[in-house]
Write a protein that binds this DNA or RNA. Structure first.
Length: 466
RNA sequence: GGUCCCAUCGUCUAGAGGCCUAGGACACCGGUCUCUCAAGCCGGAAACACGGGUUCGAAUCCCGUUGGGACCGCCA
């Protein structure tokens, strides 16, 4: 039975990298019909917040990454970690360290300056007295030998014990540290596969040593490469929008985000588009690459446009409503919505953009683009507008087909090409020279508003003629 | 500085020694369609970091160089 987990620390929002790690874990578990566990690593009391926890949960739900167990909170499992530290202490595998953080910081700084490795020197390791002073607990890393990490992605990696310092496992305030908690939890929770960012590869030998000290079975490890910013350094806030939530707010669809994220580091031949079902079927660690990947917002945008085009009009309309409301329109319940969405879905790359393009459908009064007005709302079009208003008013069914019929008839009568009709009407109705096809636009806008806007334009022309 | 990881078009990647004159996708450029803009379709430019081996044969295997990244916390 495969068991994987995602273990974020609630110190900020779910970012792109974390989301991909979660996705890989989720897909791996689903693929093997195993369990996916969510665990919140909140042992850093200073930086952990409830808001961050909630934001992470929300983002995961939005992405569709449902967890089978949890969320577990490490802050509620402190007794387990302390008990484990006690076990190590009793067996002489851990010891009290009385060095203060300030002293350690000072020594680290000096070591770096002098070009020595900034590692703890183990000075408290063999200390015999046990004064009643503040102290941390450190794990005794064997002085000799090496630990081999067999990684499903990176292969076999060897770490010499001389390179590993005696790590702190219990802080002087009694709180356990990451390397201890992660081992205790993964062991107790029966995690079979630890899939995480390769920034953890260097921690892995320490953790293996802890597993062994406790006599626990070591899980399989899979370290996935980092996601980088355009400057090829680890993706972070200074690279712009990196939180999953930010993309949701910009009008991205979760399908696009999932599809984009999975292809960052994983591939399946030449295929680019994957449904979630397909991913569950096809995902495997063997097809995860070993090199880091640069985050490319343009491709994500393309995928988003793709999924917008594919989505059902009614569902899309539903998703668009909040974005319209943000622009001040009471769009909910407007029965034109699916039709409106239909005219826009081929053109908009995000919901935000779609709402922007939909402006003219909802605005009480439209504003003419000055250039467009000058060019297309000219006195000699007066005739056209009169004919159009008459023809369209007479339509029983205000449909694309009927509208086109009226246009064609007028074109024939006046001997005009469609462009001569469509552009002035477009400007009259949308205020701009760019819009979806004119017939579908008019139908979606509705008869009443169409006629009203045409009349307004006509009156403007009349005034100009006088 | 030490340790570890990585290296195919600008970017994401295919490639498991001959199928490679290196394939796909995004972005870019051109054409086509056309009521505008998109979308779609067709086409174009664009890469095996370098040097040594191994082999009849290397993008693929080995070594080195160079370059990039991560880690070296009483953060996770």
């Amino acid at each position: 039975m495969v068991r994987t987990r995602f273990a974020p620390s609630p110190t900020g929002y779910l970012h792109i990298g974390g989301a991909r790690t979660a996705l890989f874990n989720w897909l791996f578990a689903r693929h093997h019909r195993g369990s996916f566990i969510l665990r919140i690593e909140d042992t850093d009391v200073e930086r952990s917040t409830e808001e961050a926890t909630q934001a992470i949960l929300d983002a995961m739900e939005w992405l569709g990454l449902k967890w089978d167990e949890g969320p577990y909170f490490q802050s509620k499992r402190l007794h387990l970690y302390r008990e484990h530290v006690e076990r190590l202490l009793e067996r002489g595998l851990a010891y009290r360290c009385y060095c203060t953080p300030e002293e350690l910081e000072e020594r680290r700084k000096r070591a770096l300056e002098e070009g020595r490795p900034p590692r703890y020197d183990g000075r408290c390791r063999d200390r015999k007295d046990r004064p009643d002073l503040p102290h941390a607990i450190r794990f005794k890393v064997p002085r000799n030998g090496a630990t081999i990490v067999r990684d499903l992605i990176k292969g076999t990696v060897s770490f010499d014990h001389s390179e590993i310092e005696d790590l702190v496992i219990l802080r002087s305030d009694g709180m356990p540290t990451y390397n201890l908690c992660v081992v205790v939890d993964d062991a107790l929770m029966g995690i079979t596969h630890v899939i995480r960012g390769d920034d953890h590869l260097n921690n892995t030998p320490k953790q293996i040593l802890l597993y062994e000290a406790f006599g626990y079975k070591v899980p399989e490890f899979a370290h996935v490469p980092m996601i980088l910013g355009p400057d090829r350094t680890r993706l972070s806030k200074r690279h712009g929008a990196t939180s999953v939530t930010a993309y949701r707010e910009m009008g991205y669809l979760p399908e696009a985000m999932v599809n984009y994220l999975v292809r960052l580091g994983w591939s399946y031949g030449d295929q680019e588009i994957f449904s979630v079902e397909e991913l569950i079927e096809k995902f495997s660690l063997e097809n995860v690459g070993r090199s880091s990947a640069v985050f490319n917002p343009e491709k994500l945008l393309w995928l988003n446009a793709h999924y917008i085009k594919e989505k059902d009009d009614r569902e899309l309309a539903e998703l668009l409503v909040p974005f319209l409301e943000k622009r001040g329109y009471r769009a909910r319940g407007d029965e034109r919505l699916p039709k409106i969405v239909k005219t826009l879905k081929e053109r908009a790359k995000t919901l935000e953009e779609m709402a922007e393009m939909a402006d003219f459908y909802f605005a009480e009064e439209i504003e003419y683009d000055e250039e467009a007005r000058k060019r297309f709302l000219t006195p000699e079009r007066l005739e056209i507008f009169d004919a159009l208003i008459e023809g369209l008013s007479g339509l029983e069914e205000f449909t694309e087909k009927g509208i086109e019929g009226v246009f064609r008839r007028i074109m024939e009568e006046k001997g005009l090409k469609l462009g001569k009709l469509a552009q002035p009407v477009r400007v009259a109705v949308t205020g701009r020279t760019v819009s979806p096809g004119i017939f579908e636009t008019l139908e979606a806008l509705g008869k009443e508003r169409t006629i009203k806007r045409l009349k307004k334009a006509r009156d403007l022309l009349k005034e100009a003629t006088l």
